[in-house]
Simulated assay, not measured.
Amino acid sequence: MHWHEVVIRLALAIIVGGLIGYEREFKNRPAGFRTHILVCVGAAIISMIQVHMIEDTTKLIMQNPQLANALKADIGRIGAQVVTGVGFLGAGTIIHEKGSVKGLTTAATIWVVACIGLAVGMGYYALSIFGTIGVYGVLASLKKFEGKIFHKKNMVKIEIEYYNKKDLVDRVSKYFESKSIKVKNIEFSLEEEEIEEEIEEESICLRKSLYTILVPIYVKPGKIVQDLSAFEEIYKVTII
């Protein structure tokens, strides 16, 4: 392999790794721009080492045919070790927090970048370029459609201060159902707070409830606050 071919492959590995890493960095994920470049370049180097080993083994056998049965070059062994070994980086980006798992997509991109790096190092340029375009397209374009198709939900905590109305809980529950919002937990405060109502000039007792809800990605928390604040029984709505 000539030196200019090595430079081309390393440059391509930097470009494709950086492109995918940029998308992850832009979304403030644990593994970003430099990490993806390093993984891709490292995989490309490993695959080029294997290419060199195969070329050296082939030349040695051609010069010494009697060594044909003694020397063997396993084409896929080193690449398989890269694909398996890079998993520890992906595991480091996965975070378990508040009952949800984050970082799976970033872990997957690290693994894919390693595979693309192997393709670059082997000299499969078309496969590398089209693979990169496909991966970037999935990350950048399909995120908005994913929430609509699979109705992903975000966990939100909302504190509601309200007057002592018996039917308020039912009304709030019906509102959440109409928005496909799932109530995960409700905490009622036993303490009452007195406020001075300026209009009626009298003290009114308020109660508080803390709702932990799962909100579909297409529903904005600000819209929930706005809708609930319109209820007559509700004095104040706050996102915790």
Score class of each variant (00 low, 15 high):
Leu190Ala: 12
Ala31Cys: 09
Ser173Glu: 09
Phe231Pro: 02
Gln81Pro: 10
Ala70Cys: 08
Ile129Pro: 02
Gly79Val: 05
Val6Met: 10
Lys220Trp: 09
Ile110Pro: 04
Glu161Thr: 11
Glu232Gly: 08
Glu97Arg: 15
Ile94Gln: 03
Ile116Gln: 02
Leu210Ile: 00
Leu168His: 06
Val6Asp: 00
Gln66Glu: 14
Lys220Ile: 11
Tyr218Ala: 13
Ile213Asn: 00
Val51Gln: 02
Tyr162Thr: 01
Ser189Leu: 10
Val83Trp: 10
Glu192Tyr: 12
Met53Ile: 14
Thr58Asp: 03
Gly117Pro: 06
Phe231Gln: 00
Phe33Glu: 06
Glu23Pro: 06
Val120Glu: 03
Gly92Lys: 09
Ile181Pro: 08
Ile129Gly: 02
Leu118Ser: 08
Ile186Asp: 00
Phe26Cys: 08
Gly134Trp: 11
Glu23Val: 11
Trp3His: 12
Ser229Leu: 00
Arg34Gly: 01
Ile95Glu: 14
Ile213Lys: 07
Ile160Met: 07
Ala68Leu: 04
Leu228Ser: 04
Gly42Lys: 02
Ile54Tyr: 03
Asp227Met: 01
Arg24Gly: 09
Lys157Trp: 12
Ala13Arg: 03
Glu177Val: 06
Gly90Lys: 05
Ile204Pro: 02
Lys143Ser: 07
Lys220Met: 13
Ile199Met: 13
Glu233Met: 02
Glu97Thr: 13
Val215Trp: 05
Lys27Val: 01
Glu55Met: 10
Met62Lys: 07
Phe33Cys: 01
Pro216Val: 12
Gly121Tyr: 04
Cys40Tyr: 06
Lys165Cys: 00
Val51Ser: 07
Glu232Thr: 06
Ala13Lys: 05
Gly99Glu: 12
Ile116Glu: 05
Leu190Cys: 01
Leu206Tyr: 08
His52Gln: 15
Lys184Leu: 14
Tyr211Gln: 05
Asp227Ala: 09
Ser180Glu: 15
Ile61His: 04
Ile217Glu: 13
Glu191Arg: 14
Glu233Arg: 05
Cys40Ala: 12
Gly18Asn: 06
Lys208Gly: 03
Phe88Cys: 13
Arg207Ser: 01
Ala108Trp: 00
Ala73Phe: 10
Leu228Trp: 00
Leu38Ser: 05
Glu200His: 03
Ile149Trp: 08
Asp170Ala: 13
Val156Asp: 09
Tyr218Met: 10
Lys144Ser: 15
Leu10Thr: 04
Gln63Trp: 04
Gln66Thr: 08
Ala31Pro: 09
Ala80Pro: 05
Ile217Gln: 13
Ile181Thr: 12
Ala107Asn: 00
Lys102Phe: 13
Leu139Ser: 07
Thr57Phe: 00
Phe88Pro: 08
Gly76Asp: 04
Lys166Met: 11
Gly32Gln: 13
Thr105Arg: 02
Ser47Trp: 09
Leu228Pro: 04
Ala11Arg: 03
Arg171Gly: 03
Pro65Ala: 07
Ser173Val: 03
Asn164Leu: 06
Ala43Ser: 14
Arg207Glu: 00
Phe150Glu: 09
Ser128Tyr: 06
His2Ser: 15
Val112Ala: 13
Leu60Ser: 01
Asn64Pro: 05
Cys205Tyr: 11
Ile14Met: 14
Ile15Phe: 14
